[in-house]
Design a protein around this nucleic acid. Structure first.
Length: 601
RNA sequence: CGGGACGUGGCUCAGCCUGGUAGAGCACUCGCUUGGGGUGCGAGGGGUCGGCAGUUCAAAUCUGCCCGUCCCGACCA
């Protein structure tokens, strides 16, 4: 039993001014956390207890499928140079030097470290499969820490890595993680969805994310209530409603039209009196791509190439999709000079007619592969097979109409590069899609042999042939489980956590400790509840009842037992925080009643 | 990194525009009071006004640079 009078639980009446989302405000107000710097937090008593309970659940479920390790936080740079990620990770990586001047970094993920172990130790297919996991602090120098514990620079991650002989094995390891994750998030009381995801910087083929819907989230999820389809917006697709094509004017060939001052899509559609779906939007980028066959001594070299995306006027570019299509590591909008160089026109009058599209997206050994004026042109499928469109003429104050893709201009590649919009048809069943914000609490990837291959991990298969093990990697953000749970259950007065991850199961509030009868009764009830298996916080502070009620409501404990005047009648009040509903219970029955409520969840 | 905002006791903020004595509420300490939704009264302690430089007789206040924090975008658990 813990007595509040002896504890450090610094609750605040007011939230810090910089806190905007509920979980951030309440984590600080409830004394769970304190900020040390941008994206760096101390976990105080209550915060640490809750984290501990989350970790215990994660560990229990992971132990069913894998083995726990604890890998180093400080990594030699050479390890990361081998995988090529010393450069790729860029500024997100915390770097330091040791006394000898050797480069080191703080671990932001551990593929390199586990692959190093694997290549040194694994020799035979008989040693596979392996699933290794750890629960450990990760360091990422995030460009923008956000919203309390939602996005931080130091956080606890459960990360695991699987090694299998073949695809079928990887499928099994992946499936095991899928099941373990579902069990973990269910036990943590999260209302989560599993979505198709982009595999991002990790590379690899299949990947899915575990998401909790909340407006505080940073991700957007497109989902279909009819068939269950759900995907991160970075990956989601949709069926488009058919567009009514316009009739051609004149001889049906592209016609140059003077459109002075009509630069924005809204202006152009108004000028021509057309739907924006019949206008071609042009978004011009400079893309950074790795140079093929670059000198390995010099490390990976990159070059900037012109990349122009065309899509429907009412659609929006998804840069994650575009990066992937272009094989690029970075995108930035073209500046005015670059627009002049490659498109010969300023923004607002850009179009596909007359461009020299590069033959393939695959970059050559160097820039000389590009013929003068060549640009990589990506066409969104929303424009393919369309007719009589309007687009910029690559000439100030002029547009074309009657433009037909394929007849009047060519492209490098057709690829889905747009954001799905709410209401568009589900790609599986056609029902209208919803788009909502969510927090990513877990992510599982099929990695393939990218690391094992590069770093030289090999085992002999049953035929004595050398093969490269295939990897999967899997992550859970421990603090994000807490954040998501708070976002999921809060009101004006505070929040409530599921019992499984709350710092205490129940708080016993003695309304007036100056009253010896109440004090004695409270102590007895608290120790009885503890004996019955509950984690009990006894609020024995010499404060007014109102103060203690406010605090109890604030700190996330799912139940409260109020020990007050009715003790004289042998009763106390049992309140469920989530519903703010309570009832009087005979003191003798309190443990049984609480057990009954706990079992309902 | 691009755009925006802010930085004054532990917390929330006023004062700055129009330079001259640094304030309030909450929190804290002591006394009394009260005792089922942040009790009331009284007395106290606590601030290099983010830092550095400049302007000025005089800077929290005006100017410049730097640092820090938050928000919106590009990245991710």
């Amino acid at each position: 039993m813990h007595r509040w009078s002896k504890l450090f639980i610094p609750t605040l009446r007011e939230a810090p001014a910089e806190a905007e989302v509920a979980s951030h405000k309440f984590l600080v107000r409830s004394g769970y956390i304190r900020q040390l710097g941008a994206g760096i937090y101390s976990y105080l008593f209550l915060g640490q207890r809750s984290i501990d309970r989350i970790v215990a659940i994660v560990r229990e479920e992971m132990d069913r499928i894998g083995q726990e390790f604890l890998l180093p936080t400080i990594h030699p740079a050479d390890l990361w140079r081998e995988s090529g990620r010393w450069t790729i990770m860029g500024d997100a990586m915390f770097r330091l030097k040791d006394r000898k001047g050797a480069d080191l970094c703080l671990g932001m993920t551990h593929e390199e470290v586990v692959t190093d172990i694997a290549r040194n130790e694994l020799r035979s297919y008989k040693q596979l499969p392996q699933i290794w996991y750890q629960i450990q602090t990760k360091f990422r120098d995030e460009p923008r820490p956000r919203a309390g514990l939602l996005r931080v620079r130091q956080f606890i991650m459960k990360d695991s890595y699987s090694f299998d002989l073949d695809e079928a094995g990887l499928d099994r390891s992946y499936k095991l993680h899928d099941q373990a994750y579902r069990a973990i998030f269910t036990r943590c009381g999260l209302n989560f969805v599993v979505v198709e995801a982009d595999s991002g910087a990790m590379g690899g083929s299949q990947s899915q994310e575990f998401m909790v819907y909340t407006d505080a989230g940073e991700d957007l999820v497109a989902s279909c209530a009819a068939c269950g389809y759900a995907a991160n917006l970075e990956r989601a697709t949709s069926r488009l409603a058919p567009v009514k094509e316009m009739e051609p004017t004149g001889d049906g060939k592209p016609e140059l039209v003077s459109t002075p001052g009509q630069a924005a899509i809204a202006d152009v559609t108004k000028f021509f009196n057309i739907d924006s779906a019949s206008d071609i939007k042009c978004v011009a980028y400079m893309a950074t791509i790795p140079v093929k066959n670059s000198d390995p001594k010099k490390g990976p070299q990159t070059m900037a190439i012109p990349l122009v995306a065309f899509l429907r006027g009412d659609h929006f570019v998804n840069e994650t999709k575009l990066l992937k299509v272009a094989g690029a590591t970075d995108l930035r909008p073209m500046g005015p000079e670059e627009l002049e160089t490659y498109l010969h026109a300023p923004a607002g009058y850009l179009g596909p007619v007359g461009l020299k599209p590069k033959k393939a997206v695959d970059p050559g050994p160097d820039l000389s592969e590009f013929e003068a004026g060549e640009v990589t042109v990506i066409l969104d499928p929303g424009l393919e097979n369309r007719r009589n469109l309007v687009c910029g003429a690559n000439k100030v104050d002029y547009h074309y109409r009657n433009v037909v893709p394929g007849r009047d201009f060519q492209w490098t590649k057709v690829a889905d590069i747009r954001n799905v919009l709410e209401g568009e048809g589900c790609p599986q069943c056609g029902a209208p899609l919803k788009v909502a914000r969510a927090v990513e609490v877990g992510h599982i990837f099929k990695l393939g042999n990218r690391y094992t291959d590069k770093m030289g991990a090999r085992v002999l298969d049953a035929n004595g042939k050398e093969v490269t093990p295939i990897m999967g990697c899997y992550g859970i953000g421990i603090e994000r489980i807490l954040v998501a749970a708070i976002e999921q259950g809060n009101d004006a007065n505070g929040f409530w956590l599921p019992r499984s991850i709350a710092p205490f199961d129940v708080i016993v509030t003695i309304t007036n400790v100056a009253d010896a009868a109440l004090k004695t009764a409270g102590e007895k009830i608290a120790s009885d509840l503890e004996a019955a298996g509950f984690d009990v916080l006894l609020d024995d502070r010499d404060d007014r009842a109102g103060v203690k009620f406010k605090d109890a409501d604030l700190i996330g404990v799912p139940w409260r037992v109020t020990v007050g005047k009715k003790v004289a009648e042998g009763k106390v009040e049992l309140v469920t925080r989530a519903t703010a509903s309570g009832s009087d219970i005979a003191i003798a029955d309190i443990a049984a009643e609480l057990g009954r409520l706990a079992a309902q969840r």
